[in-house]
């Protein structure tokens, strides 16, 4: 996989890498058993500092997504989206229904986006005590 840094983002570079691995997992580009590129490869290809890559890999390891195997590299341990496919489908259907309602009420995409964000933010504030430091991915 190829990493890229969005330099106009306020998200720390290492968290951008963490997020890209999670995204690749979510989209199925990476799965359990796959090896992440070596730090050296990421440095050479993406022009990212080795300390930044190490920090990202460490963060992924702490969250249990990858494991470092002595001498052979860093491997994906677990997949994301372990939620039951049926539950996912049901949630999606209800969300689609909700979006239709919002549309009928005259909301455009930006309105909907703002509304979803504010609800997520309120939910996050409520959960802040349980959420660990540095795992909140914006």
């Amino acid at each position: 996989m190829e990493f890229r840094i969005d330099r106009s983002s306020g998200l720390p570079a290492y968290l951008q890498l963490v997020r890209q691995v999670r995204e690749a997992l979510r989209l199925g580009w990476l799965g359990p058993g796959d090896r992440l590129p070596t730090v050296r490869d990421v440095v050479a290809r993406s022009g990212v500092n080795a300390n930044t890559v190490l920090k990202a890999y460490r963060e992924l390891e702490l969250s249990g997504l990858v494991e470092a195997r002595q001498g052979s590299g860093t491997f994906i341990k677990a997949g994301l989206g372990s939620t039951d496919p049926e539950v996912m489908a049901a949630l999606r259907a209800r969300l689609a229904e909700w979006v239709r309602e919002a549309r009928e009420a005259g909301l455009d995409i930006e309105d909907i986006d703002a509304l979803v964000r504010s609800v997520l933010a309120a939910d996050e504030d409520g959960n802040q005590i349980t959420a660990g430091d540095g795992v909140a991915v914006l």
Binding site: L54, Y57, V66, A68, G71
Partner: peptide, 9 residues
């Protein structure tokens, strides 16, 4: 050289 996730000194 190998990649190892280990703390940098």
């Amino acid at each position: 050289m190998i990649t190892a996730v280990e703390p940098v000194d």
